[in-house]
């Protein structure tokens, strides 16, 4: 019941700008040999332009599935979703989002520059412009000078930065990130979090970010969506009113801790509901 109320709230307090993602009463059930798995159940979610939204929850709560539904990599069994005002499939075919996966997924036979130009090649951008754009975005993620290297010659953090440059280089308005820093150590992760925040400031893109780290979610987001497993559903949507200009120090401030506390409570509520 609590969850239902929270969902109603979530619907009413959608962000101020035009909606980039609008999800209404969406469900997704995987059919497996062990019977149906309810990955997402009656999810309502609105994401406004310029938002930085984090999905947080324990594994199996459907946060990655939700992201994949937005990206049209997974089809919902029920409910509606629009991305940029059109269906998710149309949005995908319009190349309206860049997707950053859990692993960098760089192609080992291409050097870093040609990995970043890959989406531009597919979209038919002329060669000279491809190279210019790739160089620009590699600079943005601090990878200038590594154009000729191959992915396997770079560290994990650098690979993931290259994959972010690849997602940005065709300038999509929406950036979907699925635990992009999950495999990295804490120091690199902090550093990349700061860089990502600066990037968001600079580009004004809408970001949807999946994580299972509370500090990461609170540090990055303007809006935190707390999810819970079995069936995957939204428990709470928390507006994060911390100033947009954030440094890592903010993580010790009382305001930060109170938001983190609310996230933790939401996660706990999801679990007690389950047990």
């Amino acid at each position: 019941m609590v969850a239902m109320q929270e969902q109603l709230e979530a619907r009413t307090d959608a962000g101020s700008g035009p909606l980039v993602v609008d999800v209404r009463d969406l469900s997704l059930t995987f059919k497996t040999s062990d019977g149906p798995v309810y990955a997402l159940s009656h999810v309502d979610l609105q994401i406004a332009e310029g938002d930085f939204v984090s999905f947080i929850g324990p594994s199996g709560c459907g946060k990655t599935t939700m992201l994949r539904v937005i990206a049209d990599l997974e089809r919902p069994t029920d409910g509606q979703i629009t991305v940029n005002g059109v269906s998710a499939e149309e949005a995908r075919l319009n190349r309206s989002y860049g997707y950053v996966f859990q692993a960098a997924a760089l192609y080992p036979w291409r050097n870093i520059l040609r990995n970043v130009t890959l989406p531009l090649e597919i979209m038919g951008v002329p060669a000279a412009e491809r190279r210019d754009r790739a160089r620009r975005y590699l600079e943005l993620v601090n990878l200038a000078g590594f154009e000729k290297k191959f992915p396997w010659q770079l560290s994990g953090g650098m690979q993931q930065r290259a994959s972010i440059a690849r997602a940005l280089c065709f300038d999509p308005a929406l950036l979907l990130m699925d635990e992009p820093f999950g495999a990295l150590d804490e120091i690199v992760r902090d550093h990349l979090n700061e860089q990502l925040l600066q990037l968001w400031e600079k580009t004004g893109k809408t970001v949807v970010f999946v994580t299972h780290s509370i500090p990461e979610a609170v540090f990055l987001s303007s809006k935190i969506v707390v999810m819970s497993p079995r069936p995957g559903r939204v428990i709470d949507v928390i507006h994060n009113d911390l100033p947009r200009q954030r440094t890592l120090d903010i993580r010790e401030s009382p305001a930060f801790l109170s938001v983190a506390h609310r996230v933790r409570q939401g996660l706990r509520a999801g679990h007690s509901y389950d047990d």
Binding site: R68, A71, D72, L73, R92, L93, N94, R95, Y97, G98, Y99, F101, A105, L118, P119, I122, M123
Partner: peptide
């Protein structure tokens, strides 16, 4: 999935 996300 990456290729799919580019609408390739």
């Amino acid at each position: 999935d990456l290729m799919r996300s580019y609408g390739a």
